[in-house]
Structure formats: structure tokens, C-alpha cells
Amino acid sequence: MAWYIAKRLFYAALILLGVSFITYLLLFLIPADPARQIAGRSATPEVVANIRHQLGLDLPFYEQYLRYLWQLLHGDLGRSYVQRSQVSDLMAARIGPTLQLMAAGIGLELLIGISLGLVAAIKRNSGLDRALMAFSFIGVSSPHFIAAMLALYFFAVKLGWFPLGGYGGIEHLMLPAITLGVLGSGWYSRMVRSSMIEVLHQDFIRTARAKGLTRVRVLLRHVLPNAIIPVIPMIGIDIGIFMSGLVVVESVFGWPGLGQLAWQAIQQVDIPIIVGVTTLSAVAIVLGNLVADLAVLLVDPRIDVKNS
């Protein structure tokens, strides 16, 4: 077990190194010159050259990258080109709201996804089943920007159930979380439906029913726990997909999270922030997957890592 974790951590480190390298390289190749951006339109070439030197942008690529890695290991993500503040300060101010929205959003995804999957599996091949699956299909294919705008328009403007965006208490959190939850629930409902159906056909279910257990008890005690196992690693994979939706939903709802920060930084080509948010997202995805895989080991004793 310890060996397995160590091996996974080693791979995780490699992945992160790769992600940081690719991000850094891509942004290096963009033909935007941060020194000119900082220097402004009235700057003389000497001023631009001076700033370039101060930022270390006159160094060859590998030196810049190694310097970045070295600073990263010391917890220094550099300073934003536009805001001139520490990237770590800017990200720290936003990580709380993002975690809140992620927890609420993924929680709702699971709640909606598993319930719908359960219902669809029980009523499989009925009209209800097809309607639910169509709903989940529409959900996962909807563009977040449009869906978020529509949700805001109907539930906040027309019906007045929720405040019009912004950050604050639970009432502010509800609408963006529900939007993310509904849009992302499709992955889970389809997965739960198919794995439920698979489990329902197994012998031990028939045995359970045959020995006189009620239908509800069989479903909740025997089917669901078995059917839910593939959902756990799915959460790990979902973190990545979820984050891309977060960027848009946070911007629409004025939620002061990392997604909004990334959105602004991309528009302003504020490279240190883009690299910082990407690195953090990569860490979150890698860690999420690792935790999900370890959680499966605990939940399902049948999986044996020694032989995998």
C-alpha cells in the first residue's frame, strides 16, 4: 500500500512537472511582450530593455523555466504583470470562494446525478428513463455561459428567488452551485444508471430478493453501494472538467474565485497568473485523482493494488 502511494506520488510529480513545462512553453511562444506591456506606450526602448532585464525575460527559455521552477519550490509564484502584486496573494484571496463553490457544485452534481441515475435504472426503458437521459445529455452539452446567463435571468431577475450574482451567504452560493450541479450531473446519472443495471442483473441481488428482503432495502443496501464504486474515481476525473466550467460560471455570477481570476488573466495575457492558476489546477486534478483512487481501495476491498 505504502509502495503504491509512493509510486502514485512520483507519477503525480512527473505529471505536474510536465504540465508546468508545457504551460510555460506555450506562454513563452505567445508573441506578446510583457516588458512592453508593463512599460506602456510612452516608453523608450531602453526602458523596455531595462524592465525585460528586471523580469529576467532576456534569459534563454530553459533558464527562465528553471528559475521559475526554483522559485515555485520556494513558494514564490512571481508577481502579476498587470496588478504587480504577488500571484500567491491574489490566488490566496480567491481560493476560499472557489473551494466553497466546488464543494457545493460537486455535491449537487452527485446528489442530482445519483438520484436521477437511480430512478432511470429502476424505470429503465420507460418514458421517464428516456426523458431523464435526454435531460442529462442536454445538461452535459450545454455551454456554461449561456446556461448560467439563462439561470440568472429566470431565477434571479424574473422570479427573484436569488440575488443577482455576487459573493456572500448561502443565497449567493445556491444559484451558481445549482447551475454547475445540473450541468455536470449528466456524467454521473448515466454512469450510475448503467452500473445499477449491471448490478441489478447479478445473482446476489436475486438471492437477496429471494430471501425476502424488501425492494427498497435491496436497492439501498445491496445495489447502490456496489453501483456507486465507479462514481468515486469519476469524481477525480470530474474535477478537471468541473474547473473549466467554473471559469465561466464564476465570471457570469461574479463569484470571486480562481476561475474569475484566470478569465481576467487570460484576457490581459497576465502570464504569471495564468501559469499560477494552471499549476494549481493541475495539482488539484492530480491530487483529486489520487485521493479518489485511494478512496476506492477503502470502499471496495476486492481491489488489490499488489497485483495491479
Binding site: 512599460a39 506602456g40 506606450r41 510612452s42 523608450t44 531602453e46 526602458v47 531595462n50 524592465i51 528586471q54
Partner: peptide, 24 residues
């Protein structure tokens, strides 16, 4: 002062002594 990295430094180039400060 170039350490400030001001985008507006160039506006003041007509002040005597600008070049010495601007070059550091």
C-alpha cells in the same frame, strides 16, 4: 526611476536630468 517600472516615465523626458535617472 526604472525600478518603479512606470508606464508613464517617458512623459517627463523634457525635465533636465531625466536621462540620468531614467538610465539608473
Amino acid at each position: 526611476n526604472p525600478q518603479t517600472q512606470s508606464p508613464g516615465a517617458g512623459f517627463f523626458s523634457s525635465i533636465v536630468g531625466f536621462d540620468a535617472v531614467s538610465s539608473g
